[in-house]
Design a protein around this nucleic acid. Structure first.
Lengths: 327, 327
DNA sequence: GCCAAAAGATTAAACGATTAAGCTTTATCA
DNA sequence: TGATAAAGCTTAATCGTTTAATCTTTTGGC
């Protein structure tokens, strides 16, 4: 890799002059400017970002800290963040904590040592955000709001409401909820949104808490096969797919015997049979928005923290049936 | 963030001394050593990696260049690489080229500017590897072998053979192949492995080339519904799932009417119904092996290029039926 | 023709680390 | 005792940039 020095030697000027023309600053004669530009191209000069970072304090890189790439919500997010960042010439340093707080801490330390300019972070849990302060660099949270931090997430409450509305519109009266971890805000919001809109119109036959995964627990199984609900609202698509598969294996037909609504609209939703009716999160927009916000914060560190809440929408597919009669 | 200088001032010695104790080099008195270590802990000192990189030329970071995180093969790989790298204190800079050669080039340029120590790379296509040389840093290829480069991939030929063997063992005689892009080596190897082992035992009723995706083309559709094959070998699970879904939608039963074998054993394979019988790639091992090889190359740049070929295995699930009679 | 200002270039310090070389002080040994 | 070595520490250069400060030359105005 050629350096400023190489160009300077080639043209016969000082490195400062070369730096000035490459940055369009200082005052340099047209003639020299042309020569420098030509030499830079000829030598295929690329600025050494770490030297720049050293001097200016900005590294042109951001950190992306995710809990689990294996959860199909995140690859799309990562892709979106990476793309948006690359468009702006930023490098993305990836950390996948595998849902482990210690790993996350270690990952954050690495980001800090490398001096990323800012971090886009979906923390493994809510408590762990305390570790953010000593990081001492702008942070944008994904999905998990926290006092004093910028955050971008979907309108989960609206999503829950949309699901309830759909259930009502399709003539269901008795529903079950497979809700996610109650201590995770984004899961709780979905539940609340659903319940609020359901109030007075839907009777909630049962409500079971399960982890975000396709493997459900026995409580969920017995609730699903109890026949008390004609529709179940799952806190995310993974859970919904887990439910569909369980019911399928049991010989209970979806949606004829029981309807399922998911949440997230992960790619699998369209691949599973029946195709999953679900609430779609604008994952790509979330990624884009989060780097936007981060960049704003970088330009103006005094910026007051804000929440960006993106609309969700119902994607009707084949896992919800219309009901004439009540259960 | 505190620096060597801060520690030096605190203890009252020179930065050189501090550096020596922190690196266990030079000769420093026990007393000073203790004081420095204590001060370092007290001030929560973390080495500034970019300054280290500046001076030593090694940045403690690697690049990971992937064609598409949305393809379910890659998230697991990325996770594995990140984890293995983090264990060793390395940062991972992610590039997702979205199957676009220009984006990939841009991503590689960013990696270069940031001075990653090496790159783990699954190129969007075979030609594009030419761009590697000017990068001038160790590269380990994933999945796509190329003259003079280290590479790690699965034993695709074996995988194809395993699939053929299974077809034979289950009594099939007429099979179809949904093969991946012929210009991609890893796809071609699967096909060849299958055909070699099939020779003389299986008659290949048809062979259709499709892209790595769940959306199949019309040629594939008509072949699938032609009834000429009782089993089809799909070049990857995405294709297999596309086939299953098409057949399902058509009312053709899998595996009763037609059996399907996939390749990759992506997470979806277990979620789709019928559960997919497939050839499993050891994705996590591939990730681990690739950072291993990269690190070897870093320690010894003269290391001769090698290929690491990892065994695959057949995962029997529900998409292949046993046949008594021939078609 | 002279002075001030602008234009065009250079010098040198700084960012935070590493490390060869140099300088003291103390210990070793004939 | 005096030379030599070892131990313990500091100085200063260096990596590739940026940028304030400085210097020199040209230009313009009166």
């Amino acid at each position: 890799m050629s350096t400023l020095k190489d160009i300077a030697k080639e043209v016969g000027v000082s490195v400062a002059t070369v730096s000035y023309v490459l940055n369009n600053s200082g005052s340099v004669g047209e003639d020299v400017k042309k020569q420098v530009l030509a030499a830079a191209k000829r030598l295929d000069y690329r600025p050494n970002r770490r030297a720049q970072a050293m001097r200016t304090g900005v590294s042109q890189s951001i950190g992306l800290v995710l809990p689990d790439l294996t959860n199909p919500f995140f690859p799309e997010l990562a892709q979106s963040v990476e793309n948006e960042a690359r468009k702006r010439g930023l490098a993305v340093v990836l950390v996948d904590s595998q849902n482990n707080a210690d790993a996350e801490t270690q990952g954050l330390a690495i980001l800090q040592q490398h001096g990323v300019d800012g971090i886009i972070w979906c923390p493994v849990d809510d408590q762990v955000i305390q570790k953010a302060t000593p990081l001492n660099c702008p942070i944008v949270l994904i999905d998990r709001p926290s006092q004093g931090f910028d955050v971008v997430h979907s309108n989960y409450r609206l999503g829950g409401a949309l699901a309830a509305e759909h259930a009502i519109a399709q003539g269901h009266t008795h529903v079950g909820i497979l809700c996610g971890p109650r201590n995770i805000d984004s899961a709780e919001q979905r539940r609340m949104g659903f319940c609020e809109r359901a109030a007075g119109k839907l009777t909630i036959a049962w409500e079971i808490e399960v982890p975000y995964a396709t493997s459900l627990n026995n409580d969920a199984f017995s609730a699903l096969s109890s026949g008390k609900a004609s529709l179940v609202f799952a806190a995310d698509d993974l859970i919904a797919i887990g439910a569909i598969n369980y019911l399928n294996d049991k010989g209970i037909k979806v949606p004829d015997d029981i309807s399922i609504i998911g949440f997230d609209n992960i790619p699998w939703a369209e691949l599973v049979r029946p195709k999953l009716t679900t609430i779609s999160q604008p994952i790509t927009d979330i990624g884009r928005a989060s780097v936007d916000v981060l960049l704003q914060k970088l330009q103006n560190p005094a910026k007051v923290a804000c929440a960006i809440v993106l609309d969700v929408k119902l994607i009707e597919r084949d896992s919800v049936a219309h009901r004439r009669t009540t259960v």
